[in-house]
């Protein structure tokens, strides 16, 4: 299962990702990408790879983790944190 993730510290709002994957990424009022965190369907994975490769600051990653989500303690993300 692949999920797209952005590192907001690295991201500098180039907006390339939204251009290459408009199905899953759109830009907010300030030009930063809002990413649909749902797993990507097979037909989108190739486009997502291209978006990841195009990000000039390597802020975009494709998580292909096999471990089930939510099993690690996320100390500050339990409820909302």
């Amino acid at each position: 299962m692949s999920k797209l993730r952005v590192d907001p510290i690295r991201c500098t709002a180039h907006g390339m990702c939204a251009e290459l994957l408009p199905e899953r990424v759109w830009l907010d009022d300030w030009g930063y990408p809002v990413i649909d965190g749902e797993p990507l369907s097979a037909d989108l994975v190739e486009h997502a790879r291209r978006a990841v490769a195009a990000c000039p600051v390597l802020a975009l990653t494709l998580d292909q983790s096999s471990r089930p989500a939510g099993r690690e303690p996320r100390a500050e993300t339990t409820r909302r944190r």
Binding site: C11, A13, D29, W30, G31
Partner: peptide, 12 residues
């Protein structure tokens, strides 16, 4: 001041 949505959004 590290993340765009936080910097811009909270200021707005």
């Amino acid at each position: 001041g590290q993340c765009g949505p936080c910097v811009n959004g909270l200021d707005a």
